[in-house]
Amino acid sequence: MSTYCDHCGAPAGAGDHAACRAARAMEPPRYCGECRRRMVVQVTPTGWTARCAEHGTITS
Rank of each mutant, 00 (worst) to 15 (best):
M1G: 15
M1A: 12
S2Q: 07
S2H: 13
T3S: 05
Y4V: 05
Y4T: 10
Y4F: 15
C5Y: 04
C5S: 00
D6H: 15
H7Q: 07
H7K: 04
C8W: 12
G9W: 13
G9S: 10
G9I: 06
A10R: 09
A10G: 01
A10K: 13
A10E: 14
A12M: 11
A12E: 15
A12R: 08
A12C: 00
G13V: 12
G13P: 11
G13A: 12
G13R: 02
A14D: 10
A14E: 14
G15A: 09
G15W: 07
D16Q: 01
D16K: 07
H17V: 04
A18E: 13
C20N: 04
R21Q: 15
R24H: 11
A25K: 15
A25W: 09
A25R: 14
A25N: 11
M26V: 08
M26C: 02
M26K: 15
P28I: 01
P28E: 07
P29Y: 12
P29Q: 09
P29R: 04
Y31R: 14
Y31T: 04
C32N: 10
C32M: 10
C32I: 02
E34Q: 13
E34R: 14
C35S: 05
C35Y: 10
C35G: 07
R36W: 13
R37D: 05
R37P: 01
R37E: 13
R37N: 06
R38C: 05
V40Q: 14
V40Y: 15
V41C: 09
V43Q: 06
V43F: 09
V43C: 03
P45H: 02
P45W: 02
P45G: 14
T46C: 06
T46D: 15
G47E: 08
G47S: 02
W48V: 09
W48P: 06
T49I: 11
T49P: 03
A50S: 04
R51C: 12
R51K: 13
C52V: 01
C52F: 03
C52T: 01
C52M: 00
C52N: 01
A53P: 01
A53C: 04
A53E: 09
A53S: 14
E54Q: 13
H55I: 02
H55W: 01
G56R: 03
G56T: 00
T57M: 06
T57F: 02
T57P: 00
I58S: 13
I58M: 01
I58P: 01
T59K: 05
T59E: 07
T59Y: 12
T59H: 11
